[in-house]
């Protein structure tokens, strides 16, 4: 881990200091029931197969292009098949998403909106996105609650 961090430190994204998110910062931790934790940096996530969803949401204006890692890909990567995913956010919000729903609708952990990385000030760095526009049946409170922004930790249950 340390060698990773050292070699990639120069690649940290700069710009506005507050927006900056170092590529080697852990942005996602997946914990399993056995107590094991898997940590992911933005770069690691970007190295995984990418998926996109174009959709509108109740919290944004118009349709946007979201890109990131499909939850199915992440679970495959970790070789786990949990019943549900309890997603915690930076702001202490959490939601329990049935894995079946995440898989059925190909939910993604979006890291980019319209090609730009998502900052913490704009629901980043990770936002669970469901294809609301494509599946109007998802356009209800219950599913809206699954769309956790500023996601940080996922408990596989």
């Amino acid at each position: 881990m340390n060698t990773w961090r050292n070699s990639l430190v120069t690649l940290a994204l700069l710009g506005s200091a507050a927006h900056a998110m170092a590529a080697d910062d852990v942005i996602l931790t997946v914990t399993r029931s056995a107590g094991q934790a898997h940590h992911f940096t933005l770069q690691q996530l970007a190295a995984l197969p990418q998926a996109s969803i174009i959709t509108a949401t109740p919290w944004t204006t118009g349709k946007h292009h979201y890109r990131g890692v499909a939850i199915s890909t992440l679970l495959q990567q970790l070789q786990i098949t949990p019943q549900a995913l309890k997603v915690h956010a930076l702001n202490d919000f959490w939601a329990r998403i049935p894995t079946a729903v995440a898989l059925q609708y190909q939910a993604i952990l979006a890291t980019h909106v319209d090609g730009q990385p998502m900052s913490r000030r704009n629901k980043g760095p990770l936002w669970i996105i469901l294809p609301l526009s494509e599946h109007p049946e998802l356009n209800q409170e219950k599913y809206h609650n699954y769309m956790v922004w500023q996601a940080r930790t996922i408990e596989a249950e």
């Binding site: 507050a18 919290w59 702001n91 913490r120 000030r121 704009n122 629901k123």
Partner: peptide, 21 residues
């Protein structure tokens, strides 16, 4: 400080955009 600043920002940004609010 930065985290709570970003979270507050994000919250206000969400509040000011979108249909839900």
């Amino acid at each position: 400080l930065s985290l709570s600043y970003d979270i507050a920002w994000n919250r206000m940004d969400v509040f000011l955009t979108g249909e839900a609010t």
